[in-house]
Design a protein around this nucleic acid. Sequence first.
DNA 1: GTTGAAATGCTGTGTAC
DNA 2: GTACACAGCATTTCAAC
Lengths: 167, 167
Amino acid sequence: MATELDTVDKQILDLLHDEGRATYNDIGEELGITGNTVRRRMDRMREEGIIRKFTVMTDPAKLDYLTVAFGLSTEAGRTDDIAEEIAETDCVYKLWVLSGTHNIIFDARFEDTEHFQSFTHDVLHAVEGIASYESSIVTRSVIDDGSTVLMSDEEDAAEQTVASVED
Amino acid sequence: MATELDTVDKQILDLLHDEGRATYNDIGEELGITGNTVRRRMDRMREEGIIRKFTVMTDPAKLDYLTVAFGLSTEAGRTDDIAEEIAETDCVYKLWVLSGTHNIIFDARFEDTEHFQSFTHDVLHAVEGIASYESSIVTRSVIDDGSTVLMSDEEDAAEQTVASVED
DNA sequence: GTTGAAATGCTGTGTAC
DNA sequence: GTACACAGCATTTCAAC
């Protein structure tokens, strides 16, 4: 679990995070090392799975998608299976397994409301073990850095709710 | 709002989505066009805001972060201000404004539980207009494509809950 | 207005240090 | 971690559709 990332590695990731297509030389110049060194460190981090992938971030509003966030309450013991099953659906592009009342939350993208309805019918109502679900239209994405995991199988964090507060 | 993306543009985005550092020539070869055309289309999509940025996706487990998902209920009229305020915090790396009971959901990354506690105290308890909040540890990220918006100011989607079902 | 082809300067990649 | 050499890439220009 513990990782051996030094300051230079973290600086490289920071720069890549802002500009994923930056050249090795540009990154190296910024950090006072050669581009070749940057390349080898990036190769190493990719092999070690620290770097999962490089991707493009697009504006869903300009692509005319309807973005919906879902929260699921699942039967005990079925959570991981349900997560995998839902994650396989094309329109689901983010999915997390959580502690707390909603075991699974995920984001999906639909072309129209009909597409949304067929998803709830064909997927959510078809999967066994979903006690309840809620869904809300995402009206606005303020930030989404995309700097997270893809297909992680870690099972470390404690199974408990951190906090639940009413002011 | 409506956008003029043809099939080639969408194919370019699909390929970039999987491999954000793909060369223009590689993309062009895949689609049967020259790399030159790919570059000009990518430049155009970036100017039009369809492409927001290129980024690297890393594995938070390997970076030793504690990932926590929050759901906020805010006072009417304060939602956007609160969203902006929270989004400015360093450890918050995803934030959406929603319809429904939880107006704002966001993901934050903490170095340890102390960092988590100082965040809830200094940020969540300091901001006016937060009626209640919930937080859950993210035990597992099954997918996270990162293919979404950064700093969108669109305000189009209807302000209503799509569905809320109890089976 | 959009494309492909050629020219040039820069970048990525492997090898040696 | 750096230096070099070469193949490949990005970028500009220009002609053609």
